[in-house]
Amino acid sequence: MVDVVWLDNGILRLGFVPALGGRLLSLVFEGHEVLWRNASLVDSDLQPIGHQPRPVSGTMGDWVNYGGDKTWPAPQDEWLGPPDPILDSGPYTASGDLVLTSAPDPRTGLRLSRQFTLLPGASSFHLRLTAMNISSRPVRWALWNVTQLPPGIVHVGLDGPVVELIGSVSCQDGVIPVQSTVGKLGFPGSTGWVTHFGTEVSLTQRFTVDHDAEYPDSGSPLEVWIESPQPEPISWLGGLDPPDHIVECEVLGPLTTLAPGERTVLDIDYEIGGCG
């Protein structure tokens, strides 16, 4: 058994598993699950199925993808995860109402924290991400929050370019339709919001874009990743074997050089509604 922390205000019910990389693994609105969760690995009570969670390293083919909402450091090609034995798959501690904090990671020099605020009677919540340099050297990273969702149409607030980062994903005027593909788009022209329309519910994320800052991946404060099951593991993605049709809405902060003891923060507001 792993410890599960629930927040419930009568409209939203959020379920967190600190032992699984500090993930938000359930977000329920009007009886509907908003997030994608790997039903072969975690049950409806957010307990692992058929295995004991442990820190994992290796290639993408070794990654244990539980789903949900999690935070990583970017750029990915410098972090080299997931998997990652501390920031992705290591246990986080839970404190207050509710802060999830990673162990210190000597390789990146970071400790990550995720602070959730759920207000009474609201169909929204706030997430504040913090990356602190716990090393004795300067480090340069961006915060990168990844929200995994079921298939749906994605609308992006856009006032500028779109770039293909990996593979091929169709996008027209900031609208990404449902499609079976593997790939990622970056949005240097993001205006600071993205909405995913699922079958029953919508999820909007709002964030601040600093137009004077440098962002990873061709200057992208927002990225959208789509994956779908393939005939065999994808060799050019480290053996990644997509378990399902998944959409990722990924919000990034600016690349920031942190002296020892300094921190960078990224704030995201989540709004949940119906699709009718």
Score class of each variant (00 low, 15 high):
Val2Lys: 06
Val4Ser: 03
Leu7Ile: 00
Leu12Cys: 09
Arg13Trp: 01
Leu14Met: 09
Leu14Gly: 02
Leu14Asp: 10
Phe16Ile: 02
Val17Gln: 10
Leu20Pro: 10
Arg23Tyr: 02
Leu25Thr: 05
Leu27Glu: 15
His32Arg: 14
Ala39Glu: 12
Leu41Trp: 08
Leu41Tyr: 13
Ser44Lys: 08
Gln47Glu: 08
Pro48Asp: 14
His51Phe: 15
Val56Phe: 11
Met60Phe: 05
Val64Gly: 07
Gly68Leu: 08
Thr71Asn: 11
Asp77Glu: 04
Trp79Pro: 05
Leu80Cys: 11
Leu80Val: 11
Gly81Thr: 07
Asp84Phe: 13
Pro85Lys: 14
Asp88Val: 14
Asp88Phe: 07
Ser89Tyr: 06
Gly90Leu: 14
Asp97Tyr: 01
Leu98Asn: 08
Leu98Gly: 07
Leu100Met: 07
Pro104Ser: 14
Pro106Leu: 13
Thr108Ser: 15
Gly109Cys: 12
Leu110Gly: 12
Arg114Thr: 04
Gln115Ile: 06
Pro120Trp: 04
Gly121Leu: 15
Ala122Leu: 09
Ser123Gly: 13
Ser124Arg: 15
Phe125Asp: 04
Phe125Cys: 02
Met132Trp: 01
Val139Ile: 15
Ala142Arg: 04
Leu143Gln: 14
Trp144Asp: 06
Val146Tyr: 00
Val146Gln: 02
Thr147Lys: 03
Gln148Thr: 09
Leu149Tyr: 07
Pro151Phe: 05
Pro151Val: 07
Leu158Val: 09
Gly160Phe: 09
Gly160Pro: 10
Pro161Ile: 01
Val162Arg: 07
Val163Asn: 03
Val163Lys: 06
Val169Glu: 08
Ile176Gln: 12
Val178Glu: 14
Thr181Ala: 01
Val194Glu: 06
Thr195Met: 12
Thr195Ile: 04
His196Lys: 05
Phe197Arg: 15
Gly198Asp: 03
Ser202Asp: 12
Leu203Cys: 10
Thr204Glu: 15
Gln205Leu: 11
Arg206Thr: 14
Phe207Trp: 05
Thr208Tyr: 05
Asp217Met: 00
Asp217Cys: 00
Asp217Gln: 02
Gly219Leu: 02
Ser220His: 02
Glu223Thr: 14
Val224Glu: 09
Trp225Thr: 04
Glu227Pro: 01
Pro231Thr: 00
Glu232Cys: 00
Ile234Ala: 01
Leu237Gln: 11
Gly238Leu: 03
Leu240Arg: 06
Pro242Glu: 00
His245Gly: 03
Ile246Trp: 06
Glu248Trp: 09
Cys249Leu: 13
Val251Gln: 13
Gly253Cys: 08
Pro254Lys: 03
Thr257Trp: 02
Leu258Thr: 10
Glu262Ala: 12
Arg263Val: 00
Tyr270Asn: 05
Glu271Arg: 07
Glu271Tyr: 12
Gly274Cys: 10
